[in-house]
Design a protein around this nucleic acid. Sequence first.
DNA 1: CATAAACTGCGAACGTCGTTTGCAGTTTAC
DNA 2: GTAAACTGCAAACGACGTTCGCAGTTTATG
Lengths: 232, 232
Amino acid sequence: MTDAPTRSGDDGSDRQPIWTRPERGSRGPAPAHSRDAIVATAIALADAEGLAAVSMRGVATALGTGAGSLYRYLSSRDDLLDLMTDRVVGELRPYPEAEGGWLDTMLVLARRQLALHRRHPWLIDVIHRPSGIGPESLAWFDNCLRILEPVGCAVTAKFEAIAMVTGVVSLFARSEAAAGSVTFAGVDLAPYPHLVAAFSQPSAPAPRTDLFERTLRGLLTGLLLAEPSDAG
Amino acid sequence: MTDAPTRSGDDGSDRQPIWTRPERGSRGPAPAHSRDAIVATAIALADAEGLAAVSMRGVATALGTGAGSLYRYLSSRDDLLDLMTDRVVGELRPYPEAEGGWLDTMLVLARRQLALHRRHPWLIDVIHRPSGIGPESLAWFDNCLRILEPVGCAVTAKFEAIAMVTGVVSLFARSEAAAGSVTFAGVDLAPYPHLVAAFSQPSAPAPRTDLFERTLRGLLTGLLLAEPSDAG
DNA sequence: CATAAACTGCGAACGTCGTTTGCAGTTTAC
DNA sequence: GTAAACTGCAAACGACGTTCGCAGTTTATG
């Protein structure tokens, strides 16, 4: 607690983010594991048993070690979640060319994001935290800017549009994941006349894919193509 | 653990949701607190010190009692969060009449939701969980259906539109709350050419309110007014 | 009015969590 | 060769949600 310089590799380096922190020094014995192997194990665990299974003890047990040992490679569980997020974002590669026009290409990217959420359902619970921007996320963002290059509007509008697309994709992913989990069991619906009227009406299945595409197409054209003549 | 009928009021009633569970029986002494007072205390605590301060011990301390005592009124912390959510949703009342047309009225409702998020920043972390639908949320939903009554489209489309509006509002709320928390400190931006090009460009402040309104207006008209002639 | 059932608050405990710490052993720089 | 820097590991710490047992209080029932 005084000023002992021990643990300079992991413990003392809380200043710089996990992305630029060196994995190990050059002095001691070879580590039994690697940061990448830990992250891969954690992702496999989350895919199989959900995010709740990704505890320090859980990941450590899957690796055949103790919980405290993980702190030789990571400085916190949040770091692990950040690494997991960025690693699966890398699955969005390779990025498509913008051959079919920027709007269609953005839709392809959005659909790939949605597929990523389906592949890793825990992503939806992890993506909405501060300080979770890693190299792969930056690359994805950079690629979106590349796709939007032919669009002649302010960069701030592009930033907003990209963020909104990502957000809407997460909304769809959450809606898919939560499908059927809402229930009105034991609740008296009598005080809600419009609800019971809606429920008593025959409902068509309503294709979801169409909603996804229509929503994003309308969003992007509205945000990027609208003339700012009368705004403000 | 055999079949002792004790604690039938709180403990044994895990079956039915918190909304319909009776607050107390008729036998014992008068409770020192009430479910409503506990929820109000928890909300005040969350408003002041964030959701992390809303622990059973934290709420109990604010009430001058012990953590275990809270389980006489609630059966879990999740129940408490559900009650908190539904209570603040009640702040959206009274609901406006649809005098200015359904689109403008829906925008008013959306703006009120955004204001609610600004008033209770913890709401964004609590609203995206399963099983959080209470009477006030139902009333809000019912009111949205009332506003959308003159719109002649399938009820499923209305359901989707309402959910999407709520979701987009939460996106804006989250974006506002996370403003300035993302940082590229210590990260080399060289591998992201389009990003550095965007950052080197002069950026206008870009009015957010306009983005909010434009996004929702485009969303609602696109989802509710589009003709389903060529779909499918 | 007596009795028993159903309630009350409360403090101690349980198990799990993220994280810290001390220690013994290993490798490398000087 | 020595010391610094590293390694893994087990134990512990504090906080969390939750359970449990107990003593006391109120009410329904006879």
